[in-house]
């Protein structure tokens, strides 16, 4: 059972939310130019990692707003919660990694 901290409402039970799947899949800018392979990749192919996964969540029984969660799919640990429009990469953590920390 997940305890999710909605960026607007605070910590709430998982049952108030709906998971909208992998985040940061960008809708093609010029759909007419896409090949079948590119369409298939956009529509159907998923990274489905075992480990850190960025996904969209919807606070359905609350403020009804969307936001992003980075969550470990093996431990279910919530690693980061960030708003739509915020960068996918966590700058602080990316830096720490760069330093070999």
């Amino acid at each position: 059972m997940l305890l999710i901290r909605c960026p607007w409402c605070g910590p709430r039970d998982e049952s108030e939310f709906h998971c909208g799947g992998e985040a940061h899949i960008v809708r093609p800018l010029s759909p007419d130019d896409l090949s079948d392979e590119q369409w298939a990749d956009y529509l159907f192919m998923r990274s489905n990692p075992k480990g850190a996964h960025r996904e969209r969540w919807y606070h359905e029984a609350g403020c009804r707003r969307w936001f992003n969660i980075e969550r470990d799919t093996l431990t279910h640990e919530i690693l980061r919660i960030y708003r739509i429009g915020e960068a996918a990469e966590d700058k602080k953590r990316a830096k720490a990694k760069g330093k070999g920390a």
Partner: peptide, 18 residues
């Protein structure tokens, strides 16, 4: 459930979620 993990080892993605 581990199909995507093995596909990644082979260098492609699948339309599958676990």
């Amino acid at each position: 459930g581990h199909a995507s993990v093995l596909a990644q080892m082979a260098g492609f993605r699948l339309p599958v979620e676990s």
